[in-house]
Simulated assay, not measured.
Amino acid sequence: MGVLLLSLRRTASLRAVLRSRRKTTLLVVAAVTITLNWGTYIYGVNSDRVVETSLGYFINPLVTVLLGVLVLGERLRRLQWVALVIGFVAVTVLTVDYGRPPVIALVLAFSFGTYGLAKKSADVGAIESLTFETAVIAPFALVFLVWLGRSGEGHFLGEGVGHVALLVGSGVVTAIPLLCFGGAATRVSMTTLGLLQYLTPTLQFALGVTLLGEHMPAGRWVGFALVWLALAIFTAEALRHHRRELGRAAEATAL
């Protein structure tokens, strides 16, 4: 990220961010929450809970919209409130099915929702923001890697060149969508941002059920179906509202 920042000559923008206590505080919050999010996601995947991680990212749009309402004062229309209520019912159904709250899913949803809120509130360029977040977390990550190596739990260099290449490549694959997300978070409303975020969990869910063969009892299917219903209502309502706004804009232009 530092190389990218230098090559694009964005160092002045980063220095401006560092002079703002509000922006740096929000970006520290963003760095901590995205670290919590990815750490939880990695734990969930390695614990054979890919379906539950997908649930977290299905719930996340609802959490993002809720944060937009509670923190930013964004207003929801009637059908959007209906979708939120259905989403909370779905979490209740899944809690009963699991026999416990879906902790991994909830941590993923709320941590990424908070991350998006912090990024939007900071209103910093995607490259500057991600560079700052990486710089905040990097020392802690380095200490953790050293601790793993000394305790005999490290695997970075012990599994061959292909293993190292995959781990390094995963960093690049992670950085690109975060850059795109950072750019979008400052340009669109929290409601719109929430609606766009259920594409990834669809792929995760399909992967968990098909390729990885995770068990899906009837109660879990009901819970997921309710989440999908909530998202479908959100999407349909948002599209209808967008078309209505375009029509009004066209009428105003014609007048």
Rank of each mutant, 00 (worst) to 15 (best):
V45F: 00
V89C: 13
T114N: 08
E159T: 08
H163R: 03
G44W: 06
F58K: 02
T92P: 04
D123E: 11
S170H: 01
F112M: 12
V93K: 07
T92M: 13
V96S: 12
G162E: 06
T134Y: 14
A126T: 00
L130R: 03
G152V: 03
P61N: 06
W147R: 03
G152K: 01
V136Y: 01
A105D: 01
G149P: 00
L94Q: 14
L130A: 08
V63Y: 10
I127D: 08
G162I: 10
K119W: 05
W81D: 00
L79R: 15
R150W: 04
S121A: 14
R78I: 12
S129E: 07
V51C: 08
V65Y: 04
G162C: 11
S111M: 12
S111H: 07
A138F: 15
P61E: 06
I59S: 06
E153R: 14
E133Y: 12
V65H: 04
W147D: 05
I137G: 04
L108Q: 09
G158C: 05
G162H: 09
G68I: 08
G149H: 09
L117T: 04
D97Q: 15
L166M: 15
T95P: 02
G169E: 01
S170T: 11
A90E: 10
T92Q: 11
P102I: 06
F112N: 09
L66V: 11
